[in-house]
Design a protein around this nucleic acid. Structure first.
Lengths: 194, 194
DNA sequence: CTTGCAAAACTAATATCATTAGTTTATATT
DNA sequence: AATATAAACTAATGATATTAGTTTTGCAAG
């Protein structure tokens, strides 16, 4: 029984590969153990069961997502930053559909690592959005809007929800353009129901 | 062994209740059988296993969603219709989070019932969006955009992804207003990257 | 009213999971 | 070199879905 030399991070990386290649439903401890050449119970030396693994994957996914979008927006601001961030975000969800899915896990009460990873992304989006000159509350609403757009687009794209034969990149670019134009045109009376 | 008198629709309804009350991960054949007072294998007389049940739930969910949004938009058009549809859509996801989740299942090749149910919703949204005077392709992109917004918002709302203490209904109204304003302001040059 | 049949329920069995308990052994530390 | 810690293991349990085969119900045809 030669030691396999596993550690937590190795497990998370291997699980992320499984998730991206075969989908999250294929991420079982049995499959992960097989991939790593050990027996399932051995994994418990490094992770807190399947639930713990999923949380670690979520944190890892958020960190990776942050890396990608922060690098993409470096040195940019305004519209260019929003577009760059959006492209990077969707690029990530395309490259890592399984890992991205884990990041949507609702954080348990007091899960500081997960909250921190999510918070960094939130701060970055706020910073990008704040270039449009809304008030503080307006910024927060606009950030929620952008996140909704990006998450919604990626989900529908990934599960083939867009049946129509129409270029998806064009849809994304138009969607972001439209949203930015809306922010610009509405100014501060965004609440009014017309 | 008195006959329970089950049928497919009863199973789907009961499964939807489980999904909405306890989440989709709680929808197991074991739990469903217990709720209905039979043994798990008995369910196979009415459904094609768990996978078949999920497909039926997806179709049922899409039909319910269509009912809700088509009723909400009846007699309305333009902005009012978009807002009414959005409110109805989000109202449905709030009232039936579990059932809504099943509707996101990627349709298998040749799953005509699921495709039909999705198609009706798509047609309705296209009809509402077409009031804004875009060309045919523009309409389709705009529909994708609205669906992204609504799905993204509902997902993030449901799993608590909006950490900030800010009224969610305000966010939704502003988001829709912003999107509509964007469509109005951009007109047909939505593709341009600046 | 009886007979028979199809369908709906059942029991029993299998395979796959996750998880826990307890054991062995490799590696690092003293 | 001795020991302790931790990483791997085996064995066992309980939940799940699913299949095969059996019983029985309820209806329908004679």
């Amino acid at each position: 029984m030669a030691r396999a030399g596993l550690d937590t991070h190795t497990l998370v990386l291997a699980a992320a590969e499984l998730a991206d290649e075969y989908g999250m439903e294929a991420v079982t401890l049995a499959a992960l153990a097989a991939k790593l050449g050990v027996r399932s119970p051995s994994l418990y030396n490094h992770i807190n069961g399947l639930a713990g693994l999923r949380t670690l994957m979520a944190v890892y996914g958020l960190e990776q997502l942050y890396e990608v979008i922060s690098e993409a927006t470096e040195g940019l601001s305004g519209e260019a930053a929003v577009h760059a961030m959006s492209q990077a975000y969707i690029g990530f969800t395309r490259a890592h559909p399984g890992l991205y899915q884990t990041t949507l896990k609702a954080p348990e009460q007091g899960d500081t690592a997960l909250e921190a990873a999510g918070g960094k992304i939130l701060s970055l989006i706020i910073q990008v959005i704040s270039a449009f000159g809304l008030d503080e509350e307006g910024n927060l609403h606009a950030v929620r809007g952008l996140r909704s757009i990006l998450h919604g687009f990626s989900t529908l794209e990934h599960q083939g929800g867009f049946g129509m034969p129409l270029d998806l990149n064009v849809t994304l670019t138009r969607l972001i353009n439209t949203y930015i134009a809306g922010i610009r045109c509405m100014g501060s009376d965004a609440d009014s129901l017309k």
